[in-house]
Amino acid sequence: MQGGLTMERVAEKNENLWLMVVSPGIWAAHFLLCYSTTAVWCAKVVGRDGPLGEARMAIAIYTVLALAGIGIVGWIAARRQSYGSETVPQAFDTPGERHRFLGFVTLLLSALSAVATAYVGLTALFIQTCH
């Protein structure tokens, strides 16, 4: 599948920067969901000394979904990153290099987002009440 033709196709592909920010975006959405769920739960449902109960379950579900989403993005990114034959540092003026570069950065961002999401999700493992 290598060769000039494929290169041209990558060049013409209407590539944009949005995929890069999907994984961190999922992290942000996960973070906000966890925060607002627990805030509303503790303020409106069980009160300040109540148990977290189902809210912990909700955080667990959010976390699994978020990690799955980040995983998918990471997988797409990994495929782009390994496109063609070159490797890092993607420093040449070719469409293939740019394609691999965006894949590489997206992959790294997915890894960081996964770690950060896991950090945030872990809180529900340790904390059991609204206190």
Binding site: M20, W27, A28, T38, A116, T123, H131
Partner: peptide, 30 residues
Amino acid sequence: VGTGFLSFGLWVHHMFTTGLPGISLALFSA
């Protein structure tokens, strides 16, 4: 890019002593 995003999940660490629920503090600490 990563710092740009994560930096928006830190604001409550300036508010740890305002009496928010422990779980909120933990999220921002993480």
